[in-house]
Design a protein around this nucleic acid. Structure first.
Lengths: 202, 202
DNA sequence: CTGGATCCCTCACGATACTG
DNA sequence: CAGTATCGTGAGGGATCCAG
């Protein structure tokens, strides 16, 4: 498989050689959330075309970004591919800080994209020792985030224990934190405030 | 100016919309080191073609990545563009950790690329309070790095004070730290060891 | 029905020549 | 020096078809 190269002895250029083709980083993003089948990826990447998706997945496997074995027909990141999480979060953080996040109605949207991006804003604070489990429900989709002073862990589907706070909307509803808290039952508001405090603006 | 869009309501995708076209991130990389003129960028980006470079620079200016005023015929990053340093360093760090950095002789190479990439490996250590200034000379090119427990600062040309250590080779010669130190005069070796200790492997 | 492969058209890219 | 104009090539994108 021949791949375009910038032909530069530079670490940044080497990363661009492996990651810079169209769609590659978005495939990484989706696989950072969970392993996915071909058709799931296709749905999440509107406009890619099955030929190009197939080609990209082959290239990414050849480059070592994906595991060789396709467990259960799911594509899974290799250790090298999973090592891209800081890079992807760095992209999300820059974007959230500098780029207008205008949600257009005809754009595609999958809620777990926000679950990953929120991790980019997570700011550890060793003084906060109590873990908080937040559940998000949005249009049939369910996901959760558990934070404590040093870690951010997220997952899809129902959480394993009763959540401390139940946000009845997409992750992006946290953006206006006041309204996000006001809609909650009294006994969840403290946990909600505390949860939101892990994601300072700017 | 029309630009391709992924059409996704996702912060990572928004970043890809602005940064994902060919050459864009490499232009950012070069401008993170210093403002550059058109012809300087062209030299550093072998194979780009003047038409495409011109188009990219226009797009990047329209996107807000570059300053509108072209001071002294030099292209300069805007605040938004300079905000990409963590992202670019994140790419370098991943690349240095996971991708074979095989230097091919027909590849282009500019020493300041390494000066920037080295910053990706910088590990602060508040216990190291003494600043160390290292000078690199390579094939007519001169650059420097000054580190202390919390900061990494680099520049092109001669440093402003007498350096603590003088590495007579490219930055990449640090990779085999033993030989990098052995070739130095006795009185510089301690500073060299200390400097290198700021960049732990893995 | 999933997981692709094949065909074909378009446009982005890349090389070169030319201009203010 | 700093681009613009032109043009050939190949990557991207959409539709359709095929195998398990």
């Amino acid at each position: 498989m021949q791949v375009r190269n910038y032909g530069q002895n530079c670490s940044v250029a080497h990363a661009c050689d492996l990651l810079g083709e169209r769609w590659t980083l978005l495939i990484i993003r989706d696989l950072l959330v969970a392993p996915r089948r071909f058709s799931e990826l296709e749905k999440r990447l509107k406009g890619i075309g099955t030929n190009l998706l197939s080609k990209r997945l082959k290239e990414m496997r050849a480059a070592g970004l994906l595991r060789d074995d396709r467990n259960d027909a799911h594509y899974t990141l290799s250790e090298m591919g999973a090592g891209l999480e800081p890079l992807v979060l760095s992209m999300a953080k820059w974007s959230l800080n500098w780029v207008e996040q205008s949600p257009k109605p005809d754009n595609t949207h999958f809620p777990d994209w926000d679950l990953l991006a929120l991790k980019a804003l997570f700011t550890p604070d060793e003084k906060k020792t109590k873990a908080i489990l937040a559940r998000f429900a949005y249009n049939g989709w369910v996901g959760w985030v558990e934070v404590d002073g040093s870690s951010y862990v997220f997952g899809l589907g129902e959480p394993r224990r009763v959540p401390d706070v139940n946000f009845p909307g997409p992750v992006s509803s946290l953006r206006n934190s006041r309204t996000a808290v006001e809609g909650l039952p009294q006994d969840e508001r403290a946990a909600a405030e505390s949860f939101i405090s892990f994601f300072p603006v700017r």
